[in-house]
């Protein structure tokens, strides 16, 4: 019984993390380049090929992987070797761990670890990622790395607050912190026809959550910890697979943000007006899982579009936005939600 449970959990981890998340993350590194190219009227990388198979350049992630594995693994003089080794691993592991509580389909079978306080788990474990950034910058014994790490730490701490507060509104509306309960709650209908998705009842919350979580992800327009054109940032001294791990973490985080947003604000695996309790099984369950994956991919697309549209903030603008605009707005959102809930 006990080892059977472990075996099934291990299988779920393999399927979700390796097959789905890491693959999607790797493909997104290619999608990012192709998409930015198309936005800028170029073609982008389409030449990696095995034999005569080119597949629009889909083999580029594999080529990148070989390159990352065969490059020199450089450790700068004076670096703290232990932390230098640990930092990318912490960053990636804490991001991957968050997928444990995402319900990919109806019922407990499609969640790795169905926790009652799943959302708190994500916020708690997700903020571990800051250690990867801070330790990576500090351990590399490089001033630019340290500068990037400082920026990253300040930015992540600032936006963590807004991100957490925006989810409070959703918790209040649905009265639960369990992600699978949240998804079930979003299967209900408002006024008999409108799906009660998080984005319908908490539109402001969704926009603020998206902004804050993109800032958490340290990508443009919030890529100050990296700041390619000024300081290379916290991974300035990282090369080969260590750098690739940091790089992959960013893309896995895109998937994570998309997965959280899809679960909390877009009804998870719910297909509107179809089997809201998730008891049908069979073909409908497969369709529901497919629809959830589709939502994740669409939200990844949206994040990439934003990344290739907006220029980088200045650091004071970033802090102003975080503390003076987003935080009061999210607090106001909670107050309004509470008043509406109390009145109805």
């Amino acid at each position: 019984m006990d080892w059977m449970f472990m075996l099934i959990a291990l299988l779920k981890v393999l399927v979700v993390l390796v097959v789905f998340v890491l693959m999607l993350g790797a493909v997104l590194t290619w999608v990012e380049r192709r998409m930015s190219a198309l936005i800028q009227d170029r073609l982008g990388p389409n030449r990696a090929q095995i034999g005569n198979v080119r597949a629009w350049g889909l083999l580029h992630p594999i080529a990148d992987m070989f390159k990352a594995f065969t490059k020199e693994d450089f450790v700068p003089a004076g670096a703290n070797r232990m932390l230098f080794f640990l930092a990318p691993a912490i960053a990636l592991a804490s991001t991957l761990a968050c997928f444990a509580v995402i319900p990919f389909g109806p019922g407990e079978h499609f969640t790795i670890a169905p926790l009652d306080s799943g959302m708190l788990f994500i916020i708690a474990i997700g903020s571990f990622g800051i250690y990867g950034v801070a330790l990576g910058g500090w351990a590399s014994n490089n001033n630019f790395g340290l500068l990037g790490a400082l920026r990253g730490a300040a930015q992540l701490v600032s936006y963590e607050v807004t991100m957490g507060l925006n989810l409070v509104g959703v918790f209040a509306v649905f009265g639960t912190m369990s992600l699978s309960q949240l998804v079930l709650g979003q299967g209900e209908l408002l006024w008999g026809w409108l799906p009660k998705w998080g984005v319908v009842v908490q539109p402001v919350g969704f926009v603020l959550f998206l902004i804050a979580s993109m800032a958490e992800n340290k990508r443009a327009p919030f890529d100050l910890p990296e700041g390619e054109s000024e300081i290379i940032g916290y991974f300035a001294e990282f090369s080969a697979m260590r750098f690739a791990t940091f790089f992959l973490t960013e893309f896995v985080e895109i998937v994570l943000i998309a997965a959280i947003a899809a679960t909390v604000f877009f009804g998870g695996w719910q297909i509107p007006w179809l089997d809201p309790q998730g008891v049908a099984g069979g073909f409908i369950t497969v369709a529901q899982i497919g629809f959830f994956v589709f939502k994740i991919i669409a939200l990844c697309w949206l994040q990439m579009l934003i990344r290739w549209t907006l220029p980088r903030f200045r650091y004071d603008q970033l802090m102003n936005l975080g503390w003076k605009v987003l935080l009061p707005l999210s607090l106001a959102n909670i107050v309004v939600t509470a008043i509406v809930l109390a009145l109805s």
């Binding site: 998409m35 198309l38 936005i39 800028q40 009227d41 579009l305 934003i306 290739w308 549209t309 907006l310």
Partner: peptide, 14 residues
């Protein structure tokens, strides 16, 4: 407005 421009370019070229 910016997102409209970039997504138009993306879909036209895609």
């Amino acid at each position: 407005r910016g997102l409209r421009v970039t997504s138009r370019h993306f879909w036209v070229n895609f």
